[in-house]
Computed example of a mutant assay.
Amino acid sequence: MRHPGRLPLTVKNEEQGAGRGMRRDAVRNRRKLLEAVGEALRTEPGAMTMAVIAERANLSLATAYRYFPSVEELLKAYLLGVIVQLRNYSHDCPKTGPDLFEEVVREWARLVRSYGPAMVQIRSRTGFLARLRDNDEVITPVRDAWERPIRSVMRHLNVPDEHFDHALFLYNAMFDPREILDLISTGLPEEEAISRLTAAYYGALQGWAGA
């Protein structure tokens, strides 16, 4: 089982980085910083400074700044790493229709279980649709991860394509890591929580299109 604070970087990712000229120690240091962010977010989210992260990663502050110019950029890189995992899973999934959506939801629940306590600390003050319109660099891979599953469900439910952005908005509201963890913390089994959220999402899609 992966450590809940750690962001997995596959061998393939590292090889691609090395192929672009990134030295092995640079790959290692970047990974250590990202893992340190996850740990800090999980255990002491109120003390997020570059100095704290560098100390957790056993790196000098100067070295930390060499890879990330600010804590904000480091947090963004951590979150992007989780989203890219979901995007890759979604793109590779051979299923279609609601089966595709539900399979990707289950993978999202797994990621939330692993990284959710850290991810809930990373929140934007800007609304989801505004970030979507502005091609926000975090929201863009979210759209990439969910476009095929959501459009598959929309076709199945006869929801017109024109509602896609709002379908994505509804997904973001209903499957937020904080809300998933909140449901599970009440004692509702994870599988049942996800099943109920999925059914509610289908109803919300139909309600939105028919309103």
Rank of each mutant, 00 (worst) to 15 (best):
A211R: 14
Q121F: 00
Y202H: 14
E35G: 08
H163F: 14
D144H: 15
T186E: 13
L100G: 11
E107R: 15
R30C: 12
L34S: 07
P149G: 13
L197H: 10
W208M: 10
L61R: 15
R123N: 05
R110Y: 04
R125I: 08
L168E: 03
L181I: 06
R2V: 06
V105E: 01
L74K: 10
G203S: 14
A167T: 04
S90K: 08
N158C: 12
V138E: 04
P8G: 01
V138A: 14
M1C: 01
T126Q: 14
P149S: 05
G19C: 03
Q206F: 05
R23V: 01
Y67V: 07
T43D: 10
M1Y: 05
T10W: 05
G116Y: 02
E73G: 14
H163P: 03
R66T: 10
S152R: 09
S152Y: 04
E191C: 04
V159W: 04
A211I: 06
G46N: 11
R123K: 13
G38D: 01
F101I: 14
W108S: 11
L183I: 14
R106M: 05
L59Q: 05
R133N: 00
I83G: 10
R148V: 02
R196P: 00
E35Q: 02
R6M: 03
D182Y: 15
H163G: 07
F68G: 01
Y65G: 12
G116F: 07
E137S: 10
E107H: 14
R30F: 02
F164G: 10
E44D: 15
L129Q: 12
D144T: 09
V112Y: 08
M1S: 08
R148L: 09
E14N: 02
R6A: 02
T49C: 15
R133I: 04
E35W: 03
I122P: 13
F164N: 09
S124I: 02
R23K: 12
L80Q: 07
L129Y: 05
E192N: 09
M48C: 15
T63L: 08
V52S: 13
D182G: 13
F175M: 03
Y67F: 15
P189W: 09
S185H: 14
L170M: 12
R87W: 04
L34E: 01
K32Q: 10
D136Y: 10
E55L: 12
T126C: 09
P141E: 08
N158W: 09
D99V: 13
L9N: 08
E73T: 01
E39G: 11
A64M: 13
T63S: 11
R155G: 05
Y78S: 01
I150P: 01
V120R: 01
G207K: 11
E179I: 14
R23P: 06
G81E: 04
Q85E: 09
R113C: 00
A64K: 06
S195I: 03
G210C: 12
R113D: 00
A109P: 01
P4F: 00
L183W: 05
P149L: 05
R106K: 11
E137W: 03
A26M: 14
V27Y: 04
I180P: 02
R24F: 02
S195D: 02
A130W: 07
R125P: 01
G97I: 11
Y171K: 14
A26N: 07
Y201C: 09
G187K: 07
N13D: 03
P69Y: 06
A199S: 06
R110I: 00
E147P: 13
S114H: 03
N158R: 08
E39M: 07
G46W: 01
W208E: 13
E39C: 09
C93N: 15
